[in-house]
């Protein structure tokens, strides 16, 4: 729960004592608000069975895309089927080599679930296999330039402690 919500919760607890109901007051408009007494925490379980090799690749330090063995279309994020020619015959292709940073930003105002990080740079790299990869950029923010040469690097994301991929200037 954020500090903001924690404060509102305290105010609602106080109101329940004094007013009998969890009513809080918006400071700017003096409007009465009911502070929801039911909390919903959501965490999804997302199916990755058909692209599990991608995660095996990360363990070997590789970032994999998929390629259709029939028509040759390359997919990143990896796709288990070819929506171009309707084939299910896919092979794995490592996104190795030098790519180009085509754009980037720095996230200053973060989502709640990323609020424990300092400002982070996110970029899109065009890889030689013909697909783009969006990821955090592992570099001094001030040194970034559109068009610079980059590669992909796999390492653990802290503090969550799981493997993911970064864009890294060469």
């Amino acid at each position: 729960m954020s500090d903001e919500t924690e404060k509102l919760k305290e105010a609602a607890e106080e109101a329940k004592k004094n007013l009998g109901s969890p009513l809080i007051t918006d400071q700017k408009t003096s409007s009465s608000l009911w502070f929801d007494q039911r909390e919903l925490n959501v965490r999804y379980m997302i199916s990755v069975e058909r692209i599990k090799k991608f995660y095996d690749g990360l363990l070997e330090g590789k970032v994999f895309a998929t390629r259709c063995t029939k028509c040759g279309v390359v997919y990143f994020p990896p796709q288990s089927y070819c929506s171009s020619c309707r084939s299910d015959s896919m092979e794995w292709l490592e996104l190795a080599g030098t790519g180009e940073l085509i754009t980037y930003t720095v996230i200053n105002v973060k989502p709640q679930s990323f609020s424990h990080y300092p400002d982070y740079a996110v970029g899109i790299a065009k890889m030689p296999q013909g697909v783009n990869v969006l990821a955090w950029i592992d570099s001094d923010i001030k040194s970034l330039k559109v068009g610079m040469k980059v590669k992909l690097e796999v390492k653990k994301r802290e503090p969550e402690n799981y493997l993911t991929y970064w864009i890294k200037p060469e």
Partner: peptide, 14 residues
């Protein structure tokens, strides 16, 4: 990667 809505458009702005 924690993109935000301003972040997506910032990729276009850059």
């Amino acid at each position: 990667f924690g993109l935000t809505f301003p972040g997506y458009y910032a990729l276009y702005a850059t």
